[in-house]
Design a protein around this nucleic acid. Structure first.
Ligand SMILES: [Zn+2]
Ligand SMILES: [Zn+2]
Length: 487
DNA sequence: TAATCCGGTGGA
DNA sequence: TCCACCGGATTA
């Protein structure tokens, strides 16, 4: 296992645009480049290539990693993923390091989708996923995906900033058809973080759009708030101590005395996740990628690389001053997590007036299909005063995805309105180990959502974000208490 | 030169 | 239609 170090410089954000490159080819073709001025981290350059005076293409200058998203913080290749193992032939970056922003397919336009230069200038970003400054990130909007030409496309959920959109297409109603909607990475630092000025430990795994930050004053944490460099658990120097950390399953069991859920061969979520690793293809590296609803697929909304927390890359070191949720994604404010004590806000219900319903493993066969051993496994977590079945799995390097079957629990008054089909998939991105006890606060925007076959919180939130500009809807909160079993 | 982005494509 | 591959192209 080699741990190729990679250029740090390359990873870092690129200060300014490079000189426009004009690849003059045939005399039939000319290139127009437009520089964006909206992209905070490096304007993209658009090339407009006119072949026959009819076929007009707009190409982008090769994009560069944003430098601010989680994966961008990782400076080392894992050395284990498919792309690492076959680096020479595949010529792709490590799956763990793939920039969120680059996961979306680069925009490009077909001749018919041509737009005027003014439009281009207006938007310059053309819907491109421009790494956006944190301050700009107030909401996320889901978008449909185009065909993929990106090996990593499946990795991310597609969000773009509504503000950018509106700004971009001001004037011309029909937005410029985007080949692909981008991901706006947010500052994040799941694994390393500068104590102060540096990026906060903001977890912003695209898929969830449910940013959660955590502060964990607990001894079991993987220490995401340190300045220590990120390390893969399997690499020397890693702090990973799987044996010490309870598996999510264990952590989330209501009580240590409760028997663990059936595991179908694998004894814990941890192991389930662990077992998911080491495969070859990308999706095999990220098996959960298959585990999404059709709608997810349609919307190209997928989860990030998954792994158990104990397997998750992490940084060592003790946390310092991490107990503040400061590290909070200012985004659509989806959720946050806290540990230790929870300000006894009245307990809230998890819900939205939408019908979120999800793909609980037991309810949706298609959902389960991609999952071999654990789809029928269910954990129990407490939400407010209720105990609810939930499907828990790792998400992201230090995250958990928790799907809650609302229909089965009277925790959502509103859910009743949607009959028994109402289920809600909550995707919590928990950055670190939950430790003995923790509380996750979930804020679900109460937004009207069209009932689909599969809806999860992400989508709800996304839709919520989509209309965030127009109206703020009620946000309901929920908190989920995690009860750990760590000794 | 190394890294890896990105377009094109064949197979499932 | 989706996605893993391939390999040319672009950047630093
Ligand atoms: Zn890798
Ligand atoms: Zn990035």
């Amino acid at each position: 296992m080699k741990s190729d170090a990679v250029h740090h410089g390359h990873v870092a954000g690129h200060p300014h645009p490079h000189h426009p490159h004009h690849p003059h080819g045939d005399e039939e073709e000319y290139v127009i480049e437009v520089e964006s001025d909206l992209s905070p981290t490096g304007p993209d350059i658009i090339r407009e290539v006119d072949h026959d005076h009819h076929n007009v293409k707009v190409k982008l200058k090769r994009r560069r990693r944003c430098g601010i998203c989680g994966p961008c913080q990782i400076k080392q290749n894992c050395g284990r993923c498919h792309y690492c193992l076959r680096r020479d032939v595949l010529k792709q970056t490590c799956v763990y390091r793939k920039c969120v922003y680059l996961r979306s397919k680069p925009r490009s336009m077909s001749p018919k989708e041509n737009v005027s230069m003014s439009a281009l200038n207006l938007q310059s970003g053309l819907g491109v996923a421009t790494p956006t400054d944190l301050s700009m990130r107030t909401s996320l909007t889901p978008s449909a995906s185009g065909s993929s030409s990106n090996d990593f496309q499946g990795l991310s959920s597609m969000y773009h900033h509504p503000d950018l959109d509106s700004r971009a297409f001001t004037g011309s109603s029909p937005s410029i058809p985007l080949h692909h909607d981008p991901v706006i990475p947010s500052r994040m630092n799941p694994y390393m973080g500068s104590a102060h000025t540096g990026p906060y430990p903001i977890n912003m795994f695209p898929s969830s759009s449910l940013a959660a930050n955590s502060s964990l004053p607990n001894p079991f944490q993987m220490g995401s708030c340190s300045n220590s460099p990120f390390r893969y658990p399997w690499m020397p120097g890693s702090f990973a101590r799987p044996s010490v950390v309870s598996s999510p399953t264990d952590l989330l069991r209501p009580s240590p005395s409760w028997p663990p859920p059936p595991t179908h061969g694998l004894s814990s979520t941890h192991q389930r996740m662990a077992s998911d690793f080491g495969a070859e293809s990308f999706q095999k590296d990220m098996p959960f990628m298959k585990r999404r609803s059709q709608q997810d697929l349609l919307q190209n909304r997928q989860r990030l690389p998954s792994c158990s927390r104990s397997l998750a890359p992490m940084c060592g070191g003790a946390s310092s001053g991490c107990e503040t949720p400061a590290c909070f994604n200012s985004d659509a404010l989806v959720m946050r997590e806290k540990y230790g004590c929870f300000p006894g806000q009245g307990s809230r219900s998890l819900g939205c007036d939408s019908s979120g319903h999800m793909t609980s493993g037991t309810m949706n066969s298609s959902y389960n299909r991609g999952r071999a051993s654990s789809q029928y496994e269910c954990d129990v977590i407490g939400i407010d005063d209720f105990q609810v079945n939930a499907f828990i799995r790792a998400s992201g390097y230090n995250g958990l995805d928790i799907e809650i079957d609302i229909a089965k629990a009277p925790i959502v008054p509103l859910a009743a309105k949607y009959k028994s089909k109402s289920t809600l998939a909550g995707t919590l991105s928990v950055m670190q180990d939950l430790g003995d006890q923790g509380t996750v606060e979930l804020q679900v925007p109460g937004h009207k959502v069209t009932l689909e076959d599969h809806i999860n919180v992400d989508e709800i939130l996304a839709k919520y974000a989509n209309s965030l500009k127009e109206n703020f809807n009620i946000v309901e909160q929920s908190r989920i208490e995690f009860i750990g079993t760590n000794a």
